[in-house]
Amino acid sequence: MKTKILKFILPAFAIIMAVGLAFATDESNATQTGYYNHPILGVQSISTDCPDFGTVQCMEGPYQVFKDQNLTIPLYEPRE
C-alpha cells in the first residue's frame, strides 16, 4: 500500500497540483506594439510584452522601446 502511494498516487497528485498552480499563478501581460528609433530606418514598430511601468527600460537590441510613435512614453522590462 505504502509503495503504491509512493509510485502512483504521489506523482499523479504532483502533476495535477503543478498544472493547477500554473493556471492559478497565470499572469496575463498581453503583448503590445512598441516603437524604437533606428538611426537609418527611422521609427520602427515591434511586438513587445514590455509594460508601461517598471524600473528597467525596455530595449530592442541597443535601442530603447517606447509606447508611442513620437517616442515620448518609455516602456519597461516585464521583470528583472
Partner: peptide
C-alpha cells in the same frame, strides 16, 4: 515533476 510541469505549462 512539480517544477517541470509547472514551468512547462506556464
Amino acid at each position: 515533476i512539480i517544477l517541470f510541469v509547472y514551468t512547462a505549462v506556464s
